[in-house]
Computed example of a mutant assay.
Amino acid sequence: MSAQEWETAREQLLEKEKRLTRARDALAAERRRMPWMAVERSYEFDGPEGRASLLDLFAGRRQLIVYRAFFEPGVSGWPDHACVGCSMVADHVGHLAHLNARDTTLVFVSRAPQPDIARVKARLGWTMPWYTMTDEFDADFGVDEWHGTNAFIRDGDRVFRTYFINARGDESLGSTWSYLDMTALGRQEEWEDSPEGYPQTPPYAWWNWHDEYGNGRPTAG
């Protein structure tokens, strides 16, 4: 095959990839129009600093993403590992500073005690906040028998569930973009098709080195 023939074949696939990207953007726009379901029950978790509510897990930010990881007695790998799939998800999580810059917090939850969570996080180099469930949070949000990722938003002290992804859908998560695309507010960039009044800034303008957020935008040169 010549270089030109290879380039022609690539361009044919590229057109299909662009259609897929546009379809993915349209799907994310529909997620941003999902109804918000009020969370009426109070939930409590154990964390490194003691007991925490679901509202506390937001860490003061507007949005919260919660991944239910299976690390607990009875799960394959215990007590040295979380399950293989959940561990692969943890290995793919990007630097959380970028999510935080979009007013979004990501946490993991399991039923393992905090000392076990801290030990495995330290050994495997995981840095995401990881809490211990103490009630029926997993059953109430569809993650008692299988992993899954729930998105929440808060309005003051009121918490709402906005979306849920599980099974193979979790395989595509891990990057800043994939997590933001499942939230109610999205990437919060001007090109997005979002409801009137949603926060949006120019694309790229908010990007920064992960240790420079809060210090202003860098100057090119």
Rank of each mutant, 00 (worst) to 15 (best):
A112Q: 08
L54Q: 09
G142V: 14
P73W: 11
A28P: 13
E44N: 07
E44Y: 08
V39H: 06
W36M: 13
T149K: 02
E72M: 13
S53C: 02
G74S: 11
H147M: 15
A26T: 07
F45E: 04
V93G: 13
W130N: 00
F137A: 00
P48Y: 04
T105S: 09
S42R: 15
H98Q: 05
A26D: 12
A69T: 03
I65E: 09
E72T: 12
R123G: 02
A90E: 05
P48G: 02
W36H: 09
G85Y: 12
A28W: 08
C83Y: 11
P113R: 01
E40W: 12
G77S: 08
R51H: 00
T127L: 14
S87A: 15
V66G: 03
R123N: 07
N100Q: 14
D103M: 10
G125L: 02
G50N: 06
R102Y: 11
R51N: 04
G77A: 05
R123I: 02
A122I: 03
L124F: 07
G47M: 00
T132W: 00
A118H: 01
G125F: 02
R119I: 00
V66L: 05
M34S: 15
Q63M: 06
Q114G: 01
Q114N: 01
G85D: 08
V66Y: 09
E145K: 11
F45Y: 01
C83P: 04
Q63D: 12
K121A: 07
L64C: 04
W146K: 11
D116Y: 11
A26F: 01
G142H: 15
L57H: 02
A82Q: 09
F108E: 08
V93S: 13
W36A: 15
A139M: 04
C86Q: 05
V89P: 03
G148S: 06
M34V: 11
F45K: 05
D91A: 14
A26N: 14
A97K: 12
L57M: 06
V143Q: 10
R119N: 12
A122V: 01
P79F: 03
H95F: 12
F58Q: 05
A28T: 06
A101T: 14
D138K: 01
F108K: 08
I65V: 15
D144Y: 09
D103C: 02
V93R: 14
D140T: 08
R123Y: 00
R33W: 09
V89D: 12
T105Q: 10
T134N: 04
A151S: 14
F108Y: 15
D80G: 11
R111H: 15
A29F: 02
G94D: 15
R33Q: 07
W146Y: 10
H147C: 15
P48F: 00
T127V: 11
R119D: 09
A52C: 04
L64P: 04
A29D: 03
A82F: 04
D135R: 01
G148C: 12
